[in-house]
Structures are given as structure tokens and as C-alpha cells.
Design a protein around this nucleic acid. Structure first.
Length: 628
RNA sequence: GGGCCCAUAGCUCAGCAUGGAUAGAGUGCCGGACUUCUAAUCCGAUGGUCAAGGGAUCGAAGCCCUUUGGGCCCGCCA
């Protein structure tokens, strides 16, 4: 157990006191205290003020008085603050031992919320016609971080990447290759995904604007794509898989991996749509429109004043959202699985096996990548469509929160950065656009960071080999990028600026990683293996206790992050942990104290910090080097 | 016309779910700390009508309503 132990102890005792007073059903808080107000605080006296017709202060004094009769192993004393708050002071000898011992266990930070049920997390899902840009990276990092957190909260997580390989965007580059004569090989040194996005896609779409007649070619290509046996479809399959390979390389470099790739073209050809369409008709969730503007279409009725949504056109073809419905149902395991599975050709950098769907019937392997619950990470511009899907899934599954749309605001470019791309926005931030070529590639952001961190590391450690420097620079670059994408709340727009967003100081990953390097260095220099068999009562400086308290809050933070699907909670926790370590580092020396017992106690604390920080950073997909 | 989101220090953001103490960080500006376990650090100073107005409450940055400013979405496109 951790800091939660003392919270539980206090809550239990308070409940006993209340029940002796014949009071029940009061939902008081018991929380870690703000600095300067002891270790734990409760607002219980405020909530009783009306009922007992006394001031919060009087009640706090009364409860504090009774509290001294309670059995407590972790609380030293309680105190009524003049404000009315009830504050508690911990018995740190006991609590430190509890928290630091726990931190050495593999299970440290675990919370059991998922109870081993399965949950699907779908993220990335970028059209395979271009390289990933910084906006996609927000999606990917949110999805990957949430997956890691849910895993820590005892969910069995299936991570999916949906490959929309049959849409208009793919058709566009195919038009470029087949009709505008773009070479099928990228110019030397350029990744194929970059080539397709920067050159083929952007320039092909430019041509449509110049000559509207070209739209006809585009429509034909799109049509041919839907027929899996067509020459065009086979060609497109080859191209999109090469683009996908480039995209995955970017993801893997950022330590993002998946369990399964789902191809839209296969969903389209699997016949899942027909099945779900029948079901929708049976359940009367879709209606046929005989007249009006949607005459001849099947529609889903809008709620309230919202417009109806067409899902089958009057020509009988399904719309975009219609393709999402069978996929959503499939993810929840509501449909018989039409797919077989095969391993993806390349291996992921960690040991995780990557599967992909196939309709190929030879050597059929069946797998199950569905979940009791689903989290779909898509930016909030799609909130409306996702709400329709959520409502439908709620009716299918009869569990209201089975399907979750995890929305987030988009990444825009600062006016300065937009200007470097040739767009004058008059001081305003700019929306990125793949079609217009207005974006910052993820790979190039990584390269800029890598160069910067390499130079910086080299300056600090002239003695290091190139490969050591390279490895450190890699971890810092990935950390910086990931942290930047996750530290703000999901509903805040991130304005990306090529200069300002790549800082290595202040509230950044390197700040946190640096504390890890400091801790590692102390342990290394001590020449000792830290143990938990130390005298915890020697740790009594405020900076030591603050650090211990923060270490003990890990599982509470994981719980919070899980319940709110909020990755930034863990980012903030890592930062808080680092701040408290830096404060400890400044105030309490560890080595050469001439007091071996105190040294050992502090070494134990340093080691405990290092272990927990590594675990917390791991939830963010960030590794911390031992030296930097 | 309808819907979603945002507004807190010069700038970027926490805090809001679950109301309660003195509204916190980073950054910027100014001033300090490297002979020390790594200065990608630390300490200090500066900086706030919590967009505005109203309501319910003993108590509001937080809850309710209205208004203003900004962003996004609303196709038989994907």
C-alpha cells in the first residue's frame, strides 16, 4: 500500500466518529494536504456545519478531540485549523517504510480498475497517402499513452490502427501515379511516405483546382478502388502498404506499437456492412426517406434540432460514416469476425507481435482483438459523427459507456512557423492541411530535436562515444516530443512553433529526465546497492518527506488518469515528482556525509524515486537515460 | 440557423469532474547560486477585476442562466 493507506485509515476513523454521532451519508473528502497544512486534510467539518448548527472550526476541534482516541498507526496527530479544515500529520517513520517498501515492488503503481477485462484502443488511423505530421503525432501519443495507462490499470488492451486505404485521399495519389506520371520511386534520400505526401498528393490536388475536368478521373479511380480485383486496387494496395511502412517507422521510432492493423478495404469487402445494415433496419435505427431533400436515402434521425444523417445514398452506396458503423460494432465484438490474421512483415522494435487482418483463406489464423469496451482516439472535429456511433453502439451493447470517443483539439501552426512554410497568416495561427502541403512532418521535428540534443550532450560529455551520445539524444528527443503532445489537457489547442515548442528547459521531458540522471549518478557513485533495510526515521527533512509523499501518490495518479482517460495527469505527476526530487537534491546531500546510516536511508529514497519515476515515465512512453 | 469547445499572471498552461484554507507552475524580465552527488538545475523578485453580468449557497475560478470574444463542426465528400 501507499499514501492511500493513510487516507484510508483517516477515512475509516472519521466514519467511526461520525457513526458514534449518529451521522451518516456525508461524503467528505480526505486528501493529500496543500503545503503548510500538514499531510492530509479533510473538509468534513464544513459539511456538518448546518446539521450540527456549529461553526466548521468548532466541529473540527470536536472531531480532532475525538480523533485522539482512535487507533492509528500512520497518523501522529490531528489539528483543527482556524479555517475549519481538519488537518492530519503523518507518522512518517511508519509511512515512509510503507511507501518506500512498496516502491521496490513490480506492482508499484498498479490499480485494479479493469479487472482483466479487455479494452480496445484505436489510434493513429492516418490515410496511407502521406507522412505523419505533428498533428497526427498528438493523436498517436495520446492513444499510446492511454493504452499504457489502461494496461497499468489492469485492462487487457488491444491497440488497433485503422488503415483507411480505400478513400479519396488514396485515390488522389493513385491518380498522380497513374495519370500524371509521377515516378513510383522517391528521389534518393527521401522516405516514400514523405514523397507521396509532399509531392504526389499536394501537386495532384493542385491540378484538380486548375482543371475541374480531372475530377472525372478521380471518381473513376475511387470506384475502381472499391473493387478489390481491379488492377487499380492492386496497384493502390502496393503503394499504400509502402506508405504505411514509412508511417509505422515514424511511430516505432517514438516507441509506439500496435497489436493489429485493420484495413478499411477489407472491411468494405468483408460484407460486414450488409449485416449491420440489416440489424439497423431490424432495430428501426435507420429509416428510409420517401421524399424531401433526402428522398430515396436511408437516414439516421438527428436528435433534437440536429439534421438527419444520410448513411445510404439514393444510388444505394454507403456513405463515409456508414463504413465506421460495422467497424465500431466489430471492435465491440458484436459481429462474427470475417477476418483471418497474419503477422505483419516487419517486426516492431519491442517484442510485441503486430498482426494484420486478411481476407485470404489459406492458412487461416483466427485471433480476437475486440474488447468489452472501446476507446477511439479521434480529434474533436469528428465529435458529431462519433456521437452518432456512440449512441448506436449504446443501443447494440446495452452498456452505455462501452464505446468511448476520446476527442482532443487539433494542433495548429504558429504564424511564425506558418510563415516559414510560405503562408502569411497576418499574425494568426494556421490550421494544418495535408492537401495544401501546410504541415510540419513528424520525422523532421524529430531530426531537429535530435540535432539539438546531440550538440547539447556532446558539449556536456566530450568523453562519450558517438553511439552513447546518439542513444541519449534519441531518448531525450522522443521524450521531448511525447511530453509536449501530452502535457496539456485534451481540450486545449496546441500551437506548434518550430522554435518555442522544442525547448529543453522548464516544464519539459529533459527536465524530468535530468532528475533521473542525477539520481542514477548518486547511486553509481555510492558504489553500494541500496536496500530497503534502513532506518526510515532518519528521513525527516521536509524535502525528504515531500519526495516520499509524491512517490506514494503514484497509484492514486494512475487511478485518476484511468478514470478520466486523461494522460496529462501522469505527465503532471512525473513533473511534480521531478520537482520534489530537485528540491531534495538541493537540500539534502546523500554521499560523503560521514554518517553511514543516514547515507543508506537517503540512498534507499533515491533508488525508490528512480524506480517510481521510471515506471511513471514508462506510462508516457518516455525512457530516462542514466547520464545526460 | 443548430451543435461542440475555449477564455485564469506579458505569453503558454495547472486548478474546475467531487464548491471550502493563502488561486499555482513554466516562460519572459530583474537579481543571486557551479572548488560541491551533473547548473538541461536551484533560490529570490516582479507579475492576477480567474472574460463580463446575474443567480442559487454560510461560502464560487469551479455549479446554473445570460452576454461578449475566439476556435471548430453541421454534404447523397472522406
Amino acid at each position: 500500500m501507499t499514501f492511500k493507506s493513510i487516507l484510508d485509515e483517516i477515512e475509516n476513523n472519521l466514519n467511526k466518529i461520525l457513526s458514534d454521532l449518529s451521522i451518516s451519508d456525508v461524503k467528505f473528502s480526505v486528501e493529500p494536504a496543500k503545503p503548510g497544512f500538514g499531510d492530509v486534510s479533510s473538509n468534513v467539518s464544513y459539511l456538518l456545519a448546518k446539521q450540527l448548527k456549529k461553526s466548521p472550526k468548532e466541529i473540527a476541534e470536536m472531531i480532532s478531540d475525538k480523533y485522539s482516541d482512535c487507533t492509528s498507526t500512520l497518523v501522529l496527530k490531528s489539528e483543527a485549523h482556524t479555517s475549519g479544515y481538519l488537518n492530519f500529520y503523518a507518522n512518517w517513520d511508519n509511512l515512509s517504510q510503507l511507501i518506500l517498501s512498496e516502491s521496490y515492488l513490480d506492482t508499484c503503481g498498479d490499480v485494479d480498475i479493469g479487472n482483466d477485462s479487455t479494452i480496445v484502443v484505436e489510434h493513429t488511423s492516418v490515410n496511407p497517402n502521406k507522412a505523419l505530421h505533428i498533428g497526427h503525432i498528438r493523436n498517436i501519443i495520446i492513444g499510446d499513452t492511454i493504452s499504457r495507462i489502461l494496461h497499468k490499470a489492469k485492462y487487457k488492451v488491444n491497440v488497433l490502427n485503422y488503415i483507411d486505404d480505400s478513400g479519396l485521399q488514396v485515390a488522389d495519389i493513385i491518380v498522380g501515379f497513374k495519370h500524371f506520371g509521377y515516378d513510383q520511386e522517391s528521389p534518393s534520400g527521401k522516405k516514400f511516405d514523405h514523397y507521396c505526401g509532399d509531392d504526389v498528393y499536394v501537386k495532384t490536388t493542385e491540378k484538380y483546382e486548375a482543371d475541374p475536368n480531372l475530377e472525372e478521373i478521380r471518381k473513376n479511380v475511387l470506384k475502381e478502388l472499391e473493387d478489390g480485383d481491379s488492377e487499380t486496387a492492386k496497384f493502390a494496395d502496393k503503394i499504400t502498404r509502402r506508405v504505411l511502412a514509412g508511417q509505422l517507422e515514424t511511430c516505432w521510432n517514438l516507441d509506439v506499437t500496435y497489436d493489429c492493423l485493420n484495413f478499411e478495404s477489407q472491411i468494405v469487402r468483408s460484407g460486414l456492412w450488409d449485416k449491420i445494415f440489416e440489424k439497423l433496419k431490424e432495430m428501426k435505427l435507420v429509416e428510409f426517406e420517401n421524399e424531401g431533400k433526402n428522398g430515396g436515402c436511408w437516414v439516421i434521425r438527428g436528435e433534437g434540432k440536429e439534421d438527419d444523417k444520410v448513411i445510404v445514398r439514393s444510388n444505394g452506396t454507403a456513405t463515409y460514416i456508414a463504413k465506421d458503423i460495422p467497424y465500431a460494432a466489430w471492435k465491440l465484438g458484436l459481429l462474427e469476425d470475417p477476418f483471418n490474421y497474419e503477422k505483419y512483415a516487419s517486426e516492431q522494435p519491442n517484442s510485441r507481435v503486430l498482426w494484420q487482418t486478411t481476407l485470404n483463406q489459406t492458412n487461416p489464423i483466427s485471433k480476437n482483438f475486440t474488447g468489452d469496451k472501446v476507446v477511439t482516439v479521434i480529434d474533436s472535429r469528428q465529435a458529431r459523427l462519433q456521437k452518432i456511433i456512440t449512441t448506436l453502439m449504446g443501443k447494440f451493447k446495452s452498456v452505455p459507456d462501452a464505446y468511448n470517443h476520446l476527442g482532443y483539439e487539433s494542433v495548429t501552426l504558429s504564424s511564425e512557423t506558418a510563415k516559414t512554410l510560405g503562408l502569411d497568416t497576418d499574425g494568426k495561427q494556421a490550421q494544418m492541411s495535408g492537401r495544401k502541403g501546410l504541415y510540419v512532418n513528424a520525422d523532421s521535428v524529430y531530426e531537429i530535436l535530435k540535432k539539438k540534443t546531440k550538440d547539447e550532450t556532446k558539449k556536456r560529455h566530450p568523453e562519450m562515444t558517438d553511439s552513447e551520445i546518439d542513444s541519449i539524444a534519441h531518448y531525450i528527443s522522443v521524450g521531448t516530443l511525447r511530453y509536449e503532445m501530452i502535457k496539456q489537457d485534451l481540450d486545449k489547442i496546441i500551437t506548434f512553433d518550430l522554435t518555442k515548442s522544442l525547448s529543453l528547459e522548464g516544464d519539459t521531458a529533459p527536465y524530468i529526465q535530468y532528475t533521473h540522471a542525477r539520481a542514477s549518478r548518486i547511486l553509481e557513485k555510492s558504489g553500494r546497492i541500496p536496500t530497503i533495510d534502513v532506518d526510515f526515521s532518519l528521513l525527516k527533512e521536509q524535502s525528504e518527506l515531500d519526495l516520499i509523499k509524491n512517490i506514494g501518490l503514484f497509484n492514486l495518479q494512475v487511478r485518476d488518469a484511468t478514470n478520466n482517460l486523461s494522460p496529462k495527469v501522469i505527465a503532471r505527476y512525473c513533473h511534480d515528482l521531478a520537482v520534489s526530487f530537485n528540491s531534495f537534491y538541493e537540500k539534502s546531500k546523500v554521499l560523503a556525509l560521514g554518517d553511514i546510516d543516514l547515507e543508506n536511508s537517503r540512498l534507499c529514497l533515491v533508488n525508490s524515486f528512480k524506480i517510481v519515476l521510471e515506471k511513471a515515465l514508462d506510462l508516457l512512453g518516455i525512457k530516462a537515460p542514466d547520464r545526460m
